Amino acid sequence: MSTPEPTTNPAGFTKYKILMGALAAIIPVAVAILYFLPGVFVIPGLNVKALPAVNAVLNSLTAVFLVIGYYFIRRKDVAKHRAMMGLAFLLGSLFLVSYVAYHSQVASTKFGGEGLIKGIYYFILLTHILLAAITVGLVLFTLYFALTEQFQKHRRIARWTYPVWLYVSVTGVIVYFMISPYYN
């Protein structure tokens, strides 16, 4: 049995859509600026050395909660699905803050591998970066449709959001392990 969609558009819905759209554009641009212009927002004395490992843990846990959330929704346990997806969103948000903090302080580490592994690394990294930029908007709108009880729209976009977000979370961990030997 499906839940009917709300028939009205409360005044707040439109402003939240605009906010979600703005965040979906601003966040990837801000991350790109920090990536290409490291040291723009340096905070003297801030030690961020452990953050890449913390980010890998956050990405790993995000992936775990995404899979568990998917498991619960397939069994129609909406309450547990909502809890797992809320945890995935929280961890993903913490990851984003930690990632921005790290890259605002430190230039990106160069991959030192050679040959085939270098091509594999850059393929994974490129797809990870491109899909990560898309993931921000997908996640925000998927969450928006769930919170506004627009469940048909939520399900439609979640079919795209879930695999992309899971791919980004898992490849983030893979990228970390591949580049970690080259951290100073």
Rank of each mutant, 00 (worst) to 15 (best):
A24V: 10
S60W: 02
L46N: 05
V31I: 08
V40T: 13
Y99W: 07
L96W: 08
Y35C: 13
L90A: 05
A56F: 04
D77M: 12
F41D: 09
F36I: 06
T109Q: 06
D77Q: 15
Q105A: 08
E114M: 14
L34M: 13
V67K: 00
I68Q: 09
F72S: 07
V42C: 10
L34I: 09
P44D: 15
V40W: 11
L94I: 12
L94G: 13
A88V: 11
I43R: 05
A22Y: 11
V31Q: 10
G39N: 02
Q105C: 04
V106W: 04
F72V: 02
L66K: 00
R74E: 11
V106L: 03
V42K: 10
G112N: 07
A30E: 13
F89Y: 11
F41E: 12
A101Q: 06
P28R: 09
K110S: 13
R82C: 00
V54C: 02
V42S: 13
N47F: 05
F111V: 06
M85E: 02
R82I: 02
I43K: 12
V57Q: 10
F111S: 00
L66V: 03
V29Y: 03
L94T: 10
S93G: 10
G113R: 08
I73H: 00
L34W: 03
F89S: 10
V54G: 09
A22D: 14
G112E: 05
A22P: 05
L61G: 15
S108R: 13
A83M: 12
